[in-house]
Computed example of a mutant assay.
Amino acid sequence: MSENAKVAIVTGSSRGIGAAVAERLAKDGYKVVVNYAGGASAADKVVSNIKAAGGEAIAVQADVAKSLAVARLFDEAEKAFGGIDLVVNSAGVLDLAKIAEFTDEMFDKTMSINVKGTFNSCRQAAKRVRSGGGIINISTSVIGMRLPTYGLYVASKAAVEAMTQVLTQELRGRNITVNAVAPGPVATEFFLEGKSEEVIARMAKMNPLERIGQTDDIIGVVSFIAGPQGGWINGQVVRANGGMC
């Protein structure tokens, strides 16, 4: 690993899209900070996979909903690798219910992780990411589809997209890009949990390619935006969803 390798923090990267992003960025040459809230063994496995492939990574526990924990996450990244060049905000939760049936606890959990967690990380990233770096927030292509039971999740991700576009302007002159990637349904535990085969098959038909996305479909987009060929992409929401409307 080059001493000049760039450094990436990926929140919520002990599993799912976040884990796949962490491993892809390591292959792209980044030193990676694998963040997790509670799954230490899963995070350690991601780190082991990265090291086995010749990369460099550490795991850092931090609840993104807590501002001091996120500040410590960034501190640990700088301490271990000397700086930060890329932050991918992948930590999130998905609770489904009709709006009339959501409890206060479900609302607070969703907003504290999906919105405040992204805000906490973006706030630190805005202060610490080095010139030439980037911030990529993970949103969702469910925005705009008006699917029943997704109301709170969509609301939280709409806030993420709004922060993305405002932060782009606030970092004017810093040579730092800020974008969002909005996947459609992806075959991860996060999406598949609690869904019947019938529901999954129906959702696969929502896009013209008629399949559920795979993590490779998403991490390639993240890698491109983060890479040198993606340097002119800024302030955008890239909907990686197979054409789902």
Results as ranks from 00 to 15, higher is better:
residue 48 S to T: 00
residue 61 Q to D: 03
residue 122 C to S: 11
residue 228 P to I: 07
residue 29 G to R: 09
residue 93 V to K: 10
residue 181 V to S: 09
residue 34 V to K: 12
residue 92 G to R: 00
residue 232 W to R: 13
residue 240 A to H: 10
residue 137 N to K: 05
residue 165 Q to C: 01
residue 53 A to S: 14
residue 14 S to D: 08
residue 46 V to D: 10
residue 219 I to Q: 04
residue 137 N to A: 03
residue 71 A to G: 12
residue 64 V to R: 02
residue 87 V to H: 00
residue 214 Q to W: 04
residue 123 R to V: 08
residue 134 G to H: 01
residue 72 R to W: 03
residue 64 V to A: 02
residue 213 G to F: 07
residue 25 L to T: 12
residue 70 V to N: 00
residue 71 A to R: 14
residue 85 D to F: 11
residue 236 Q to D: 08
residue 74 F to M: 06
residue 115 V to R: 03
residue 38 G to I: 12
residue 89 N to Q: 08
residue 153 Y to V: 08
residue 158 A to L: 07
residue 194 G to Y: 00
residue 235 G to L: 09
residue 147 L to R: 14
residue 26 A to L: 10
residue 241 N to V: 02
residue 48 S to Q: 15
residue 58 I to H: 10
residue 231 G to Q: 14
residue 142 V to T: 00
residue 170 E to M: 02
residue 16 G to Q: 01
residue 217 D to I: 08
residue 32 V to Q: 13
residue 25 L to D: 05
residue 155 A to L: 12
residue 175 N to T: 06
residue 147 L to D: 08
residue 148 P to V: 04
residue 27 K to D: 13
residue 190 F to E: 11
residue 125 A to T: 06
residue 156 S to P: 08
residue 221 V to L: 14
residue 33 V to E: 10
residue 104 D to F: 06
residue 167 L to M: 15
residue 240 A to L: 07
residue 26 A to Q: 04
residue 227 G to D: 01
residue 208 P to Q: 06
residue 31 K to W: 09
residue 143 I to G: 11
residue 119 F to Q: 10
residue 2 S to R: 12
residue 76 E to L: 12
residue 148 P to E: 14
residue 200 I to R: 11
residue 225 I to Y: 04
residue 212 I to S: 05
residue 86 L to V: 08
residue 110 T to Y: 05
residue 117 G to R: 07
residue 91 A to H: 06
residue 152 L to R: 00
residue 133 G to F: 05
residue 134 G to P: 11
residue 119 F to D: 01
residue 194 G to I: 04
residue 84 I to G: 08
residue 137 N to V: 00
residue 150 Y to H: 15
residue 69 A to F: 02
residue 137 N to I: 03
residue 207 N to W: 04
residue 12 G to C: 05
residue 42 A to L: 14
